[in-house]
């Protein structure tokens, strides 16, 4: 969400979300480039409501750029991004803000406001958009903290006093502050130890189940892909190489997909020790 946007009218939600399993984000013919360099060339992708979609790709294939294009931080040269059935390029700024309220973003390095405490960071979007009493704001911040597995003591600390894992959790709590329908995660488990990363995966899966979230997750973590993603989209050559559940991805003949899903690191990870794609929505 843009911190520069003014509060949108509180009790106006344009439309109900689509049915479970139907596309909530539709990307068609998306072309994005910087200067001479073309990052995406005619990319097409659907994200279905209620799923956890993992986006993978070699470094520099534009995973983060795709995420930033969907949330409107990068402008496309061509193509359409539809979220909740609205073409994001065609919306007036006010309508856009209504849509922006319905998603939360976890940036790669957390992007917590460094001059605010964790509690104030979580309350920031609530204060902007909701009309709640001070005591309820405090209680809600504590609820969100507990939801992401942080101790109440963390509330009064500043981001610079937190460990990497705590920053990710606090940033997730802020992303969840307005009860979004879609959560965008940019490498949520990077920089966490394997136990912390597994915890974080678990947390995302639990939250997705209880809150009915749709999760768009850029990741390199093979364990996350195997453990919690319903579908995987692999980017390469400016487009989506293939989308599908893990089993399907492993059978693809594209050399990069072969190397990624059947390489030594993949074999060493949980791919082969637990039933892949076992979680159902």
């Amino acid at each position: 969400m843009s911190i520069f946007s003014r509060p949108a009218p509180a009790n106006e939600r344009p439309d109900p979300p689509p049915e479970l399993g139907l596309p909530i984000i539709e990307i068609r013919d998306l072309t994005v480039g910087f200067g001479e360099r073309l990052i995406m060339d005619g990319l097409e992708l659907d994200v279905r409501r209620g799923e956890i979609l993992g986006v993978v790709g070699a470094s520099g294939t534009g995973k983060s750029v795709l995420l930033r294009t969907i949330i409107g931080l990068v402008h496309q040269r061509k193509g359409r991004v539809r979220v909740f059935g609205h073409d994001m390029g065609q919306l007036t700024p006010q309508r856009r803000r209504l849509i922006e309220r319905r998603w939360g973003v976890l940036f790669q390095h957390g992007a917590l406001f460094s001059s605010l405490t964790v509690k104030q960071n979580i309350q920031f979007p609530m204060r902007e958009y909701l009309d709640l009493s001070e005591s309820l704001l405090d209680e809600m911040a504590m609820v969100k903290l507990r939801l992401v597995g942080l101790k109440p003591e963390a509330a009064e600390r500043f981001p610079s006093e937190l460990s990497g894992g705590m920053i990710k959790r606090a940033a997730l709590a802020r992303a969840l502050a307005l009860d979004p329908e879609i959560v965008f995660l940019d490498e949520p488990t990077s920089g966490l130890d394997p136990i912390g990363a597994a915890d974080f995966d678990e947390l995302i899966a639990t939250l997705q189940k209880t809150l009915g979230l749709t999760v768009f997750m850029v990741t390199h973590d093979l364990d996350s892909l195997a453990g919690i993603c319903d579908r995987i989209a692999a980017l390469g050559d400016g487009r989506v190489l293939h989308t599908g559940p893990l089993d399907e991805m492993k059978k693809q003949s594209h050399p990069w997909l072969q190397a990624y899903f059947n390489g030594p690191r993949a074999r060493a990870s949980h791919f082969y020790t637990q039933p892949a794609g076992g979680r159902t929505t």
């Binding site: 509180a10 009790n11 939600r13 609530m126 909701l130 009309d131 709640l132 309820l136 307005l178």
Partner: peptide
């Protein structure tokens, strides 16, 4: 959350 004040 959109009806937060009414709910309180």
């Amino acid at each position: 959350a959109a009806h937060g004040d009414a709910l309180e």
